[in-house]
Nucleic acid binder design. Structure first.
Lengths: 151, 151
DNA sequence: GTGTGTGCAAAACGTTTGCACTGGA
DNA sequence: TCCAGTGCAAACGTTTTGCACACAC
């Protein structure tokens, strides 16, 4: 935990940004909730517990900054709020999401299934892939087991 | 064109909705700009040229309605606005997007590369896929040919 | 002191809603 | 006379911005 904060501190400093107490509190919240996809509001409420004097704008500014530095990834699941994920150190953070349209749950698949596709894109389309997003909308196992369909 | 409007009219009527002049104007704009991914505001401005008295709320309501009827698909590319695409009659409209982070252009790939993955999801994860979204961010061919990299 | 970073409040943004009105069955 | 559909304006929730202040170097 401390080591990871230290690392992020260095990432900031390498671009002449400081790890202020507010930024550190924000990062800690992200670290403590790595499993979730927190919205800015979520982060704000959690940060308030650690550092009650922080302002919402600061949280937004911090998340934006961390996003630019590729410390977090800004996600958009089409529900009207941006969500923020810490980028895992390892690999290129290419995972996929299963979004249940019934219960709203979200599951992650950590495998990257798209590498062959990306190679095809480079060759057939001349498109150099930096990142991708693959989300599936559907019905999760739990919901399937307790309903008859309507879509 | 007229045939396609007629078809949409029937889709509406089958659910007891009417193809009002405003709705028709909206549909015409969508048909005439099938290649683009128009935002509600885009649609509004284009509809105004045909039917200047229309209100933005009506456009939103129409797009929402068409979306519910699966006449259009509501897309989200994470740029803060919803975009709307006519669903092509054929197939399940499973295509993918190449979004250039340099020039903002967007190209569509009409092939569906994910069918094998969806089968895996059903079997390994018990997740029933209704729809998916696959977007690649990167540098398009045109931009690549006229720059040195920085990302 | 000069700077970056901050809190607050106000603004901006896309979108939705309330409401009175209209126009066709 | 209904009642779905509409235009307008106001409300909404998220995000951004302006500005004066704080605090580190």
């Amino acid at each position: 935990m401390e080591a990871r904060i230290e690392k992020i501190k260095q990432q900031l400093q390498s671009q002449d940004y400081k790890l202020t107490p507010q930024r550190e509190a924000t990062v800690r919240v992200l670290l403590e909730n790595e499993e979730d996809h927190l919205s800015a509001e979520d982060v704000f409420m959690l940060v308030k517990e650690i550092a009650p004097e922080i302002g919402l704008a600061t949280v937004y500014r911090t998340l934006e900054l961390l996003s630019e530095l590729h410390v977090v990834e800004k996600l958009n699941f089409g529900d009207g709020v941006a969500r923020y994920d810490l980028r895992t150190d390892s690999s290129k953070h290419h995972h996929h999401h299963l979004i249940c349209v019934q219960c709203g749950s979200m599951e992650e698949i950590m495998e990257d299934w798209l590498i062959p596709l990306e190679e095809r894109l480079e060759q057939e389309y001349g498109f150099h892939v930096i990142d991708h997003r693959l989300d599936f909308q559907g019905i999760c196992r739990r919901c399937r087991e307790s309903r008859e369909s309507d879509e």
